[in-house]
C-alpha cells in the first residue's frame, strides 16, 4: 500500500512496489485521457529551497496533466526561509494547505525533517549530493519500457562515477535484479567510490569491470548510461578542464554499438554526447525525460491513494 507514504530514497520502495508504480505509469502512457482528471481537487506543493528547472517543471507538468493544481516556491529567497523560518515550520505550514509535497533542499536529509512534521506525503526531489529517488524511478521505468525488464542486462556507466549520485542510486536499484553486469567507464580520478564497490557490487555478487575507454566495451552493452562531469564538484578548475571532455560519445563510437543498445543520460548534457548522436534512434535521453514525467504522475496517484 503506497497511500500516504513518503519517498525519501529509492530503496524505500520494494521491487513489487516499484512494479506497481511502473505498471500504472505504462497505463497512463497508453491511455492518458483516462487519468487527465484523476487528481482534480488536489494540490501539490513544490518547495524548492534550491533552484531546479527540470525536476520542478516535470513535477508541475505531472500534476497539471492529472487535473490537479500546483503551488510553491522555486528559490529560498522568495520564501519565509529568507526570514529565518526552519524547514520543519515551513513544511508543517504548507502541509496544512496541500495534499502532497515535493521538496528539494541543498542539505542532505532535509526531506526527512519534512516527514517528521508533515500531515501529507513528502517526495524528495533531491537533497544535495545525497538522494534523488524520482530520477532513479525515471531511469528504471525507461529501462523497463524500452528493454522489457531489468534482468540479464549489461549496463555501461560512463563519466563521473565518483560524485554522480544518480549512478550510485541506479546501481543500487538494479543490483536487486538477476544477472546484471556493470561496465564502469571512467578516468582514474572519477572511478566509483570504494563503498559502492563494497556495499553494492561485492556484497550482492554483481559482475563488473572497470575500464578507461568507451570503444573497448561499447559493443557488449545493452544500455550506455552517460553522465556529466559536474564543475561544482571540483576544487580546482584545472582538474575540471582536464576531465570534462574525457568522454565524448559521437557517431563514430555509436557505430560500434549493438543495434538495440540504448543511450541514457539524466540531463542536462554538456559536451559528453555530441549533438549528432541525438538523431540516432538509440539515443533515448529526451524520451527518458518524458518517462520521468509519467513516473511522477504514477507516483503522485499512488501516494494520494487515487488509483
Amino acid at each position: 500500500m503506497l497511500k500516504s507514504r513518503n519517498l525519501i530514497e529509492p530503496m524505500d520502495l520494494s521491487v513489487e512496489e516499484l512494479d506497481e508504480i511502473f505498471d500504472l505509469a505504462e497505463e497512463i502512457i497508453k491511455k492518458p485521457s483516462e487519468y487527465s482528471n484523476i487528481c482534480a481537487g488536489n494540490l501539490l506543493a513544490t518547495l524548492f529551497f534550491e533552484p531546479s528547472t527540470r525536476t520542478r517543471i516535470s513535477f508541475e507538468a505531472a500534476m497539471l496533466k492529472l487535473g490537479g493544481k500546483v503551488i510553491g516556491f522555486s528559490e529560498p529567497t522568495s520564501s519565509s526561509i529568507a526570514k529565518g523560518e526552519s524547514i520543519a515550520d515551513t513544511v508543517r505550514t504548507v502541509s496544512c494547505y496541500s495534499d502532497i509535497i515535493v521538496m528539494r533542499h541543498p542539505k542532505e536529509g532535509a526531506p526527512r525533517i519534512g516527514t517528521m512534521v508533515s500531515e501529507v506525503p513528502i517526495i524528495n526531489a533531491g537533497d544535495g549530493g545525497h538522494q534523488h529517488p524520482t530520477q532513479t524511478l525515471t531511469d528504471l521505468l525507461t529501462i523497463r519500457s524500452l528493454k522489457g525488464g531489468f534482468s540479464n542486462l549489461t549496463v555501461g556507466l560512463c563519466g563521473d562515477l565518483m560524485f554522480g549520485r544518480t549512478v550510485h542510486s541506479l546501481m543500487k536499484a538494479l543490483s536487486r535484479y538477476e544477472n546484471i553486469t556493470f561496465i564502469l567507464i571512467s578516468p582514474q580520478e572519477l572511478m566509483i567510490p570504494e563503498y559502492v564497490r563494497k556495499e553494492v557490487l561485492r556484497k550482492n555478487g554483481i559482475k563488473y569491470e572497470e575500464v578507461r575507454r568507451i570503444e573497448e566495451v561499447i559493443d557488449k552493452l545493452d544500455i550506455l548510461y552517460m553522465t556529466r562531469v559536474q564543475k561544482e564538484r571540483f576544487f580546482n578548475e584545472e582538474d575540471y578542464v582536464r576531465l570534462k571532455d574525457h568522454y565524448i560519445l559521437d557517431n563514430e563510437k555509436m557505430a560500434l554499438a549493438k543495434e538495440d543498445m540504448i543511450v541514457m543520460h539524466p540531463l542536462p548534457r554538456v559536451n559528453e554526447i555530441a549533438v549528432e548522436v541525438d538523431n540516432d534512434p538509440r539515443a533515448i535521453y529526451f524520451k527518458q525525460a518524458k518517462y520521468g514525467m509519467y513516473v511522477r504522475m504514477a507516483l503522485i496517484i499512488k501516494l494520494l491513494g487515487l488509483d
Binding site: 526552519s86 524547514i87 520543519a88 542539505k107 542532505e108 536529509g109 532535509a110 526527512r112 537533497d127
Partner: peptide, 13 residues
C-alpha cells in the same frame, strides 16, 4: 559532523 547534513542548519532537529 557532516557539514552537508541538514542537522548542521536546522535548529531543534
Amino acid at each position: 559532523k557532516n557539514p552537508r547534513c541538514v542537522t548542521s542548519i536546522e535548529r531543534n532537529a
